[in-house]
Amino acid sequence: MLPGDIVSWILSGGGEAVHSAEVREALRQELGLNDHLVVQYGRWLWSMVNGEFGGRSLVNGQPIAAIVARQFPVTLLLVTYAVALSVIVSVPLGVLAAWKRNRWQDYLVRLITIPGQALPNFWSALLILLGLVIIFRWSPPIVYTSPWEDILTHFQIIFLPVLLLAWEHSSHIVRVTRAYILEVIHKNYILSARAKGLSQRHILLRHALRNALVPIVTILGLQLGWLLSGTLILESIFGLPGLGGGLVQAALVRDYTVIQSLATLLVFIMLSVNLIIDLIYGVIDPRILLSPQLTRPYTGS
């Protein structure tokens, strides 16, 4: 069980005011926290299916559906930009690193990607922000603006978190791409392609990369969880009012209904993305669609 008491948190204003046990008890009753846990959980489950999406926040009484409607687009944009940027950057870099294995290009790619995997993004974020302050006396805007309101301000505020998320995300993909390309290029069909006189570029892009794409796409999907967790702190640092920051805040104050609803939403997103990736497998490698026939047990007939 998550320890802590939301009622005390509300009444004490974060732990700095005195209140009586009677008031605490009355608020507990008002919020329905005196009901049996099963009753509370049942109430929440019902609210998830009746269109209320978890009911209301215990801290501020706002409908959770409204909170999600406000926060989800921010995180969606952030993650979409980060995934797009990382795919655009990481796959070519991974191919390049494999192609130029153990040459300076490979070393340079490693130099960029290993810190990307190793450094916590919130730490990098603060250092970069401090660097910008010290050198350029500049910082990103502090009030979030959607791209439909002001595209330039939106770009200024979201550029750095996207870059940091993409750095972390793509670092892993670059390493995976490099590893799988290196594995594939020693296969017999690549040798055949070389024997047929195909160019190195053609072999890498049409044969090696395509065969390495399945694990790369798998990693892309699995990495989404990391990407979403990366938004938790970055959204707070950069003042982005997204799901990540909202979830952290809800957890800190024990806003159980919000935590449960947002966690359920994130699980749903993860499952959906992995389902989509499963479907993409068939497009990337048609053999996967045929696999039921290929793997049917031999009956002797």
Binding site: L126, L129, L130, L132, V133, R137, W138, S139, I142, S236, I237, F238, G239, P241, G245, Q249
Partner: peptide, 14 residues
């Protein structure tokens, strides 16, 4: 709304 103190410092200093 700036929940991170370092982010507040940076915004103020710029």
């Amino acid at each position: 709304i700036i929940s991170d103190p370092v982010a507040m410092d940076i915004a103020f200093r710029t």
